[in-house]
Amino acid sequence: MADPSKRPTLPSRPGRRFRDAATLLPVVGVALLITPVMTVFTRADSLFGLPTPFVYVFSVWGGLILLALLLGRRALRINVSK
């Protein structure tokens, strides 16, 4: 498990930024996907020939995945699981 000697005594700045971002990401996801917020963005009936709700949901979904990917990599790099 964690080697205490490698444990930083104070959370480093990147660590804290990561923490904030990781905490915030699902909140953003919830806000965009399962609140009435989504109706605001899906008023138009179609977008590029595709139904707007479909485009909206999958775009937000894809965006969340992308951000999670970036954060996940970061998590591995700064070793936050310790």
């Binding site: 923490r19 990401l25 699902p26 909140v27 996801g29 996907l33 399962i34 949901v57 999670a68």
Partner: peptide
Amino acid sequence: FVAIYLGPTLVFVGWWW
């Protein structure tokens, strides 16, 4: 049907929680 997948997605994206 997407809701069945979105719930888990949010839980995983928010794994930190």
